[in-house]
Design a protein around this nucleic acid. Sequence first.
DNA 1: ACAATATTGAACGTTGCCGTTTAATTGAAC
DNA 2: GTTCAATTAAACGGCAACGTTCAATATTGT
Lengths: 209, 209
Amino acid sequence: MASASDKKKPGRPSDTAKREAIIAAAGRRFFEEGFAGTAIEQVAADAGVSKVTIYNQFGDKRALFTAAVTSECEKMRGHFSLDSAPQGTMRERLIDIAKAMFAFLSRPEMIQFERRIAAETEHDPAVGQAFLEAGPWQMKAAFGAWLAQADAKGELAIADPMLAAEQFVSMTKGMGDLERRFGKVPSIEATEKRITCAVDAFLRAYAPA
Amino acid sequence: MASASDKKKPGRPSDTAKREAIIAAAGRRFFEEGFAGTAIEQVAADAGVSKVTIYNQFGDKRALFTAAVTSECEKMRGHFSLDSAPQGTMRERLIDIAKAMFAFLSRPEMIQFERRIAAETEHDPAVGQAFLEAGPWQMKAAFGAWLAQADAKGELAIADPMLAAEQFVSMTKGMGDLERRFGKVPSIEATEKRITCAVDAFLRAYAPA
DNA sequence: ACAATATTGAACGTTGCCGTTTAATTGAAC
DNA sequence: GTTCAATTAAACGGCAACGTTCAATATTGT
């Protein structure tokens, strides 16, 4: 039986390459200039596309925005993995994980993206929800499971892994990402120190008996 | 000798009450709708003032924005104090402080303000800098001093109080303020548990020998 | 009273931008 | 080649908003 997707529409098909170019250009503009500050004609120019094509494919400025957001969220989904460095002592492994996390989270594009999503959440809560599900919550679940496994193996003594995961991530970030969000780039040394001290504090708090 | 401020300009003086009303209205609009999304005529209407008055007093839309930001930062400056509950055990005191901090930081106006400042920092780094100095950095210094005092009295064993202050604040916030920034309001119970567990972890990590 | 400045309401020019329309072209499928 | 739909450039209507100008009025110091 032929499914609905088998129905080949007659005529010229829409150019998917252009569609992707549009979404990419829209993301760049939206996450840099904001929603109200972005002109669709500028997006069209960036994508090398006519403005009418955008309206034909997305219909609306807000629809284009949500398309850009969901695209970015999909790119983010599962982008962070914990398979880095399963070797070494627990302290070394935690430091590696913390470094990878911090590096992933403090990329300029990520900071930019978070800023805009947060600002836009006020008018469209669904945007914030989508981001939370695609990013932070997935990361928390993955790392929480990792900690639960460490607890089961007796390498750590953690009663509530999900909460400990939050504490760990929060401590490694410290005020670092906050400062970044407000324009100050922390030095390498400060970041290193922050991470190692956070790991040490975490280990003192959750060392097995 | 007469200073420059003694020079009284002839003619009608500018109405300071109106000026404050303008700044207040501008803050409300800017921090709710964003810079690009705010219409000066709307600000004028909110403040019960003519649009020309705004341009006479501030000259520019961006100047009005920075005036609103600095005003808000001044209101924030020193608004948070640590004199709450100097009684009780260390655990009780820390819990009280953490609750006060979290309550202060997760007020809707504060979340809104942070969102907009972060978004605007991209185009005007001075805005982010001003916010950091008026808010987070002052708070960190105050609480760091508090921890150093506790260390001196032997109630805690903290080598680097400033860094420990970051860790404490970060843990008590956990993902709470992040979720708030993206639209999810955490439940009272979750917040309470997060705070007490953070305090306990902090005490395990920094208990005196 | 007078001079000097503030404030106001209204209107204006300009710009930017959303969303639509039109006519013409291009490209794929049959 | 025909047919159907996507794409394009250009132009338009309309709207919102910035910033300015102007004449009239209000408010203060001398």
